[in-house]
Design a protein around this nucleic acid. Structure first.
Lengths: 133, 133
DNA sequence: CGTTTGCATTACGTGAACGTCATCTCCGTG
DNA sequence: CACGGAGATGACGTTCACGTAATGCAAACG
């Protein structure tokens, strides 16, 4: 099976994105599908990158931020200085993500608290209604 | 001190946003400053909401999603059915946030792993350079 | 009393992230 | 060989979340 490669349509169905999105990501140098004539063929590497892109988006990162991060995952044949810079960017992102996680944890706790409040309010409203009815 | 109230400028300095942003949030019904003549005066409630807005944005929520959530924090005099709906929306958001947190935790672990990789690569590159030099 | 300062409104502009439409090109099938 | 379907390429449109004038008003200040 030469099925390391996927067409644009297969990609769309697998990852629930549109062709436009995939072409857009290629234009922005987030993906690098190979060409068979005109047609794009997406490799395993592209799929790995796409997963990271979609995850990054759910975290609220911009495509540009994601692009910088992706470089760390496919180091390739970079120069030492460039590699070091990539590494530093990644460390910053990591710190960023850990901060987010803490905030998120706190937000979750607070929201849970509010939900308990909401339950009480709803309960008492039902009670009032009953009493008033 | 009647200083439960803040001017738009004070708000901007305190929360590091522009006047435009605050007016925009009011237009979108995320904030409800009172008026003294023409001027806006932001209450403690507005400040609490703004904090939640800014935090929500860092999590990648849209302003519309945030607006729905905010209703839970200032219940006011809603009807039972509306309150119940708000409560349900909040529960969905909570589930959403918990999913995000898990994904984020995983992403952090993976990124840490990549960073260890990066360190090794950089170390070996320095070594090669030394050997080649 | 003219002018700066602070805030207001109205309206057009902008960057990010795609959507949509028109048009073109192969490729396989009847 | 006509033709439908998958995919490509511009190019313009759209939504979100504000930015950026242009203009106006009203209190404060020298």
């Amino acid at each position: 099976m030469t099925e390391d490669l996927m067409t644009i349509r297969e990609m769309c169905e697998t990852y629930d994105v549109t062709p436009r999105t995939l072409r857009f990501y290629e234009a922005k140098e987030l993906l690098f599908p190979i060409r068979e004539g005109q047609k794009r063929l997406f490799t395993k590497r592209d799929r790995a990158r796409l997963k990271l892109i979609l995850r990054g988006k759910r975290f609220g990162f911009s495509l540009e931020e994601i692009r910088q991060l992706l470089d760390l995952y496919h180091v390739g044949d970079q120069q030492l200085t460039q590699m070091t810079r990539t590494y530093e960017i990644a460390r910053e992102r990591l710190a960023d993500m850990e901060t987010r996680k803490e905030e998120l944890t706190q937000a979750i706790d607070e929201l849970k608290e509010q939900l308990r409040w909401g339950e009480k309010v709803i309960a008492s409203m039902k009670h009032e209604k009953k009493a008033a009815g």
